[in-house]
């Protein structure tokens, strides 16, 4: 057994496994819509754009989680507002806000005098989560799932036939804002687990893996959740026993599952 396991308390390990459950499922569910709506870029962007919020919270002495949450909400509405008309496409709006907010974050980090304070948030610190962070993860993840479930049939319809949805009176623009907001909630939770740089993998990879294996959305959501938990727990276990960075281990475990699914599909479905 590694030295690392001796140092890390059992409570911390238990919390880490629980955190995977709390962020893995919301990420997988939201990720299905992100993948199917071809918005994969947004997960990465949202994760990076919360940086200034985190730094401001650090400088003002707030919990970093709340800084990230506020920045995430501002970014999601900023993307929605900037791309509400056709003059600026959504991917362009994401690209502009993503780089601008990340640059602002780096600028503000310079004010703190130490980049080391943010190492956990950049690369993930799942083995060092406090109780409040875990509770916040549960609230945000639960809220995202409940809200999505309540508009599921409309969100599904808007995702493949927005014109028809509009003709029956569904406000597709409002649903887009809602999706962006729920994504912000999900991403902020996931950042605590795998860090800013690797968050989009938790959002995209399990959903993309599931998409290889099924052509029905409910099954895709179930499979994606299963892969997120499997990859998350496998990566975490590997990290605990080998002292390998946890965020990277989780993402690589998820990627391994994607590789296996890809192989399976290539061999058996052609």
């Amino acid at each position: 057994m590694s030295e690392a396991l001796e140092i890390i308390s059992l409570t911390a390990v238990r919390r880490a496994y629980l955190a995977i459950l709390l962020v893995g499922i919301p990420c997988a569910v939201m990720g299905c819509f992100v993948v199917l709506r071809r918005m994969a870029f947004i997960g990465d962007a949202l994760a990076h754009t919360v940086l200034p919020g985190i730094v401001i919270a650090f400088l003002k002495g707030f919990h970093l989680f709340f800084g990230a949450l506020v920045a995430g909400i501002i970014t999601s509405f900023g993307i929605g507002w900037l791309s509400r008309r056709k003059e600026v496409r959504e991917d362009t709006a994401i690209g502009i806000l993503f780089t601008a907010m990340f640059a602002l974050g780096i600028l503000l980090m310079g004010q703190t005098g130490s980049f080391r304070d943010f190492e956990g948030i950049l690369f993930g610190n799942i083995l060092y989560l406090d109780r409040l962070t875990l509770q916040a993860m549960a609230v945000l993840g639960g809220l995202s799932l409940v809200l999505l479930a309540s508009v599921f049939k409309e969100m599904e319809l808007v995702s493949y036939d927005p014109s028809y949805a509009q003709t029956i009176g569904i406000k597709t623009e409002k649903l887009r804002y809602l999706l962006l907001l729920l994504l912000a909630f999900t991403v902020v939770g996931a950042i605590q687990a795998v860090g800013v740089i690797l968050t989009s993998a938790l959002l995209i990879t399990p959903a993309a893996t599931a998409a290889l294996l099924t052509k029905k959305l409910p099954q895709m959501i179930l499979l994606a959740s299963l892969f997120a938990l499997l990859g998350g727990w496998a990566g975490l276990t590997f990290s605990v026993f080998t002292n390998f960075p946890s965020g990277a281990a989780i993402v690589l475990a998820c990627t391994l599952l994607f590789g296996l699914a890809y192989l399976y599909r290539s061999v058996f479905r052609q």
Binding site: L36, E156, Y160, D161, S163, Y164, I170, T214, K215
Partner: peptide, 21 residues
Amino acid sequence: GELDWDFPVHLRRMVLSGRYV
């Protein structure tokens, strides 16, 4: 051409969406 035919939804569910209104 206005519909995303690659979306993982089956025919019965797609037709059911006509009742949502």
